[in-house]
Nucleic acid binder design. Structure first.
Length: 293
DNA sequence: AACCACGGCAACCGCTCGCGC
DNA sequence: CGCGCGAGCGGTTGCCGTGGT
């Protein structure tokens, strides 16, 4: 928020800057609802606003748009943001496309103020403290000595994508999960996760031992097999009629065929986004193809 | 009550990209 | 091909509210 200032447009007309007044909001809102989106400099002029088009665009997109979701982020949204950030990095607009009603600015602010801070707190844990209890084989969660870490949200999303209301049975989940855990890439490649910038880079920059903190110890599993095959086989063993797992299975096959990056090159337009489908599609992304490392 | 520090977030800035001419 | 312009994006700024002392 800034103090209202003034600048000048090409016609030497005073342009307001800073906070929007309720009157300005009303003018812009009325104009947009009546005329829809056009050239933003025209919007500013025709709506009788002494603002630049850019400012009007921002105000509309980030605050006035009727389809905006107000209020705090839900835990589900938070998880999704963290997950998507691990995949997409700081591409806030891309992340926003996948969170209906949320703007890139809002998500960016939320990330920078809340999530980043939490992740930083977690990364300050030393590997020694957590080594002994980092993985609980009973509940399949990575545990840090009973510490209720926000990272557990991250892990939940990243490692346990099938754990939602529409997912298969618990035993099925466990079977798949065991295979996934065994195929964790860092077991073979240290902490060089094949993710596009973002979360892991941040953490790794701050704490070189991070990889040791949150994943099973190296001696617990073999490091020589084909983890992609493992994941696929795990799925084959499970109910073949499960559309969920068929879908998942096909994605893995496509991954192995086309390479990991292709999965994310398709752009989803606003409104086409279906959270559940996307979670199915992307949840295993970091674990699928390590041949390029 | 006054002061201070800090976090949240709205808004701005600078840059890139795409398009029309 | 180059230029100008508008749109969009990510990074940054700085005001305001709130909690602590």
């Amino acid at each position: 928020m800034r103090k209202p200032e003034a600048s000048f447009d090409k016609n030497k007309k005073k342009l307001r800057k800073g906070l929007w007044s309720p009157e300005e909001d009303e003018k812009l809102m009325k104009y947009m609802l009546k005329n829809g989106q056009g050239c933003w400099s025209d919007v500013a002029r025709n709506a009788g606003l002494q603002r630049c088009g850019k400012s009007c665009r921002l105000r509309w997109i980030n605050y006035l748009r009727p389809d905006l979701k107000r209020g705090a982020f839900s835990p589900q949204e938070e998880e999704l943001i963290i997950h998507l950030h691990s995949l997409l990095g700081n591409r806030w607009s891309q992340i926003a496309c996948r969170l209906p009603g949320r703007t890139d600015n809002k998500i960016k602010n939320f990330w920078n103020s809340t999530i980043k801070k939490r992740l930083k707190d977690v990364s300050s844990f030393s590997p020694k403290e957590s080594e002994s209890s980092l993985y609980d084989p009973n509940n399949k969660y990575f545990n840090i000595g009973g510490f209720t870490s926000p990272m557990q949200h991250y892990q939940h999303v990243e490692f346990m994508p099938m754990f939602n209301s529409s997912s298969p049975s618990t035993s099925m989940q466990a079977t798949v999960l065991n295979s996934i855990i065994e195929s964790l890439p860092m077991l073979e490649h240290g902490i060089n996760m094949p993710v596009a910038g973002g979360f892991f880079n941040d953490i790794i920059d701050n704490n070189k031992g991070f990889g040791d903190m949150f994943f099973p110890s190296l001696e617990s599993v073999s490091t020589t097999y084909d983890h992609n095959l493992k994941v696929e086989n795990a799925c084959k063993n499970i109910d073949a009629n499960s559309s969920y797992l068929n879908n998942f299975n096909n994605k893995i096959k496509a991954e192995n065929r086309d390479g990991v990056h292709n999965l994310f090159q398709e752009e989803l337009a606003m409104g086409e986004w279906d959270m559940e489908e996307f979670m199915k599609d992307v949840s295993f992304f970091p674990f699928l193809d390590f041949s390029n490392l």
